[in-house]
Simulated scan of single mutants.
Amino acid sequence: MELKEHLKEHRQRLGLSQEDLAERIFVTRQTISNWETDKTYPDVQSLLLLSDLFGVSIDELVKGDVAAMESEIKKEWRRMSRLIAAAWGLIALGVLCAVAGFVSHTGPSSVLPGWSEGEVLGCVAFLFLWLIGLGLAHQVERMKKASDLVTYKDILAFSKGEEPIRDDDALGRRQPLASNALKFIAAALVGLAVAFVVTRFL
């Protein structure tokens, strides 16, 4: 990314320290340091403030970065898509295990009275696969945060003259981990309900 060089160059041109710049655009000195070391990327609002302060356009600030951001988004999106597909695939497999356990005709379980051995094994397999799926979803959220993909998408939209995504009321944007956890809990409940219904009609 070239923004880090542009930031340092314009900051030094104006004789500003990282702390001075941070005060001018309402962020912390550590945030400026992260931008200048390419650890994180400014959001659209920060870029607007920087361009106004430096007297340059946003296009000049992010020049050379747009293509890199598009490439990063495509690459990370492919990886995340594979992980999400694997997560849901594991949940589906878990549901099948639970259904198979409920429809199997095995002896009573010594672990849970009133349950058959197959039912217990099916539910254990389901829980195990569901937890792995939840772990994969959490990994996707960590990837998004590490790559700052929401910010990249906002900047790409802005560079094309489009409105950046501002769906701040969406749970998935404010609390992505909680959103995924709720989805996977719902999937678990649906899976167990399907297994229960199937066993009652077979």
Rank of each mutant, 00 (worst) to 15 (best):
V103Y: 00
W130V: 01
L149F: 12
I73S: 12
E163N: 08
D59N: 12
W77P: 00
A188S: 11
Q175L: 08
K75V: 06
F54R: 03
F128E: 00
S57A: 11
F128C: 05
F126L: 04
I25W: 02
V197A: 09
L47S: 07
V66Q: 10
I91F: 14
G133P: 07
K75P: 06
S147V: 10
G114E: 01
L61F: 15
L189G: 02
G172H: 10
L192Q: 03
M143G: 15
G101Q: 00
D167S: 14
L53W: 10
D38P: 02
V197D: 06
E2L: 10
A22K: 10
T28C: 04
A22P: 03
T151I: 14
V120I: 11
L182I: 15
K8M: 04
F102A: 01
V62T: 15
L93S: 03
A85G: 01
A187Q: 04
F126R: 04
G89S: 04
E9W: 02
L96A: 05
L83S: 13
R142M: 15
T40K: 06
L192M: 06
A178Q: 09
L93M: 07
A157I: 14
H138T: 13
H6V: 05
V150K: 11
V66Y: 11
R11M: 03
D148C: 13
V194E: 02
R24I: 06
L112W: 12
F201M: 13
R79M: 09
